[in-house]
Design a protein around this nucleic acid. Structure first.
Length: 104
DNA sequence: GCCATGACATCCA
DNA sequence: GTGGATGCCATGG
C-alpha cells in the first residue's frame, strides 16, 4: 500500500462518514465494506488521526457500544442527532446506516 | 522480513 | 449477557 493510496483510502473513509445522515450510525466494518478496502481496524485507525473533520461519533462498534476512548462524548453527540440511546448502547437495528436508503 | 499494536468483528463456552 | 480466543488488515519499529 503506497502512501498515496493510503491518503485516497483516508479520503474515501472520511467521505463515507460524512455521508452518514443525522439520526443514523454506521459500524467500522460497514465503512470498511462501503469503501471496499481494508478492514474495521483501519477505519478506526483513520478516525483516530483524521476523524476530527467528520462526524466520527456516527461511527460505532458492531456491538452498538462506542469505543472506550470516546464513548462518553459519543453517546451525548448521538443523542443530539436524535439517535435513541438505551443503557449506553445504540439500537443498531433501527439506526443502522443504509448507503442505499439514506434517511429512509 | 519478523514482531507488536490497534476508535474492530465473529465464534464459542 | 459476559468473557476469552481467533481472525483480519495496515502501520511502524
Amino acid at each position: 500500500m503506497s502512501a498515496v493510496d493510503r491518503e485516497e483510502y483516508v479520503e474515501a473513509v472520511l467521505l463515507a462518514v460524512e455521508s452518514i445522515p443525522p439520526g443514523s450510525v454506521a459500524t467500522y466494518g460497514d465503512i470498511a465494506a462501503y469503501v471496499g478496502q481494508g478492514g474495521p481496524r483501519q477505519v478506526g485507525a483513520i478516525m483516530r488521526e483524521y476523524g476530527g473533520g467528520v462526524p466520527w461519533w456516527r461511527v460505532i462498534r458492531a456491538s452498538g457500544v462506542p469505543a472506550d476512548e470516546v464513548g462518553d462524548e459519543q453517546l451525548q453527540l448521538l443523542r443530539g442527532d436524535g439517535v435513541r440511546v438505551t443503557n449506553g448502547k445504540v439500537d443498531l437495528r433501527v439506526v443502522r446506516w443504509d448507503p442505499e436508503n439514506p434517511g429512509d
